[in-house]
């Protein structure tokens, strides 16, 4: 509350002095201010998440909405992803007479990279925009203030529960999407061939190692955390009425998607370094 107020005061005073300021300098200043504000927001999350009382009921509700309700979309995307990747990869492998490598190649691609990243992007689109728009609309219609004056900590109730749910639910969804995607790959392989279910998965697991699965799952926790953190941040700090709601939802998705690629790039480098 106090932090919000200070930010508000700062914004108003800056509006008055900024007209004479260099526009590039101002953009740079805004950028660093946004980063520091986001960092404070994240630090507040880590502070509030361990402090009782815990909003367990709301956490379960959000896990249901964020996780279970996203499953159909993630499942369909996963199935198509596996199917299409297999169909697209077959001609190239056939040129080298390596069609028998298809299950293993597709599996490694899905588990290591495509599964986590595509699922996280779908998740950012569905859940990130939802959180951004919901919190922004609560902010501009004074629902967050109403929560605060009723003696409830809105950050804990709205932000902590959503970030925690998304951080836990995304890895679960990625595992499910990977499994469904492999099934899609099995269908894809059998469109032009005849490979038994048993043989297909034997080939898949023969080539998959701990180094493929573990880092891929770990990075999804960071994806989930960043998607929800950025969406909550944008929603919780929305202003400008209904226009602000649209802006919050939009920027939540854009920033969350961008963060997925940045985290992925770092994760790949770290994986190569240690495993």
């Amino acid at each position: 509350m106090v932090v919000d107020e200070k930010i508000k005061n700062k914004i108003v005073s800056e509006e008055i002095t900024e007209s004479s300021e260099n526009p590039y300098l101002k953009k740079l200043k805004d950028f660093f201010e946004e980063i520091s504000s986001l960092t404070l927001f994240a630090l507040r999350f880590f502070k509030e998440v361990v402090r009782p009382p815990y909003e367990f009921k709301e956490f379960v509700k959000q896990s249901y909405l964020i996780g279970y309700k996203s499953f159909p979309l993630v499942a369909i995307t996963g199935l198509i992803m596996g199917l299409v990747l297999t169909i697209q990869s077959r001609p190239t492998l056939a040129q080298f007479g390596a069609e028998s490598w298809l299950p293993a190649m597709v599996a490694v691609s899905i588990i290591r990279e495509i599964g986590p990243v595509i699922t996280a992007l779908i998740f950012a689109g569905k859940v990130g925009s939802g959180i951004g728009a919901e919190l922004a609309s609560m902010k501009v219609t004074e629902q967050i203030d109403a929560m605060e004056v009723s003696g409830t900590n809105p950050f804990k109730y709205l932000v902590v529960t959503r970030i925690l749910s998304a951080t836990i639910m995304l890895p679960v969804l990625v595992v499910a999407a990977d499994a469904i995607s492999l099934y899609g790959a099995y269908i894809g392989v059998n469109l032009e061939g005849d490979v038994s279910f048993h043989l297909f998965f034997l080939q898949v697991f023969e080539k998959l190692s701990f180094a493929d699965v573990f880092p891929a799952i770990i990075k999804t926790f960071f994806f989930g955390f960043m998607i929800a953190l950025l969406s909550c941040y944008k929603g919780f700090n929305a202003n400008k009425g209904t226009e602000g709601v649209g802006q919050a939802a939009n920027s939540a998705v854009v920033l969350a998607s961008l963060s997925i690629f940045i985290i992925d790039m770092i994760a790949v480098q770290l994986t190569n370094l240690f495993i």
């Binding site: 609309s137 609560m138 219609t141 004074e142 629902q143 203030d145 109403a146 929560m147 004056v149 003696g151």
Partner: peptide, 27 residues
């Protein structure tokens, strides 16, 4: 202290995702 001070907002600020009952149960 806030529990002893009621605040009726201009827009009423009812929680959109909750029923009237849940809105009243919230405080």
């Amino acid at each position: 202290l806030r529990k002893k001070v009621g605040f009726l907002f201009q827009s009423a600020a009812l929680y959109d995702s909750m029923t009237v009952r849940e809105n009243l149960e919230f405080p």
